[in-house]
């Protein structure tokens, strides 16, 4: 009983505490660099699209708001033919970023995307792609992958031996 009264008294005293509410939009919140807001597609250090169209972000998405189609250029480099995020469904969970094996998809500290028209919240690849490496500079998936996609030749990757000469009998 006493503890109940004490609780009520303590809660009552909060009337005089400083309020934590930030009165957005007059006052803006300070966002951390790793804040998970809007989704972007980044580029690799060589200026190429990082996305290889592996569909992992799409499958990780709990609200299924990512749709894409992978395609290939003449070198065999995979990229998305289209890449669409329906932000009117997005819950900003960041699973897509977690799932992305090439650091292509990244969530950035911007959340001011409200719109009067839901259709405007459907972002295509052109809307998502930014000319930056984002949080992970220096990484180019095709340099570490095994296949040849116009970035490096077989055996010239960061962790690769020269291709095996099948005709050689040497050990």
């Amino acid at each position: 009983m006493i503890s109940h009264l004490r609780t009520m008294w303590l809660v009552f005293l909060h009337l005089f505490k400083k309020k934590v509410t930030i009165e957005y939009p007059e006052e803006k919140a300070e966002l951390h660099p790793r804040y998970r807001g809007r989704i972007v597609l980044t580029k690799d250090p060589d200026g190429g699209e990082r996305c290889v169209g592996c569909y992992l972000c799409a499958v990780a998405c709990p609200v299924d708001c990512i749709a894409l189609q992978a395609t290939e250029d003449e070198n065999g480099r995979r990229y998305p033919d289209f890449f669409r995020i329906n932000f009117s469904r997005c819950i900003f969970c960041g699973y897509c970023e977690d799932a992305c094996p090439t650091y292509a998809i990244q969530l950035i500290p911007d959340f001011e995307m409200a719109d009067y028209n839901r259709q405007n919240l459907v972002f295509e690849k052109e809307d998502l792609l930014i000319d930056s490496q984002g949080k992970y500079p220096g990484y180019n998936f095709y340099r570490v992958a095994g296949l040849e996609a116009g970035v490096k030749k077989k055996g010239e990757g960061e962790n690769e031996e020269k291709p095996v000469d099948v005709h050689s009998l040497l050990p």
Partner: peptide
């Protein structure tokens, strides 16, 4: 309620 919860 808001005031007692440090909100506005």
């Amino acid at each position: 309620l808001a005031l007692w919860q440090d909100r506005l």
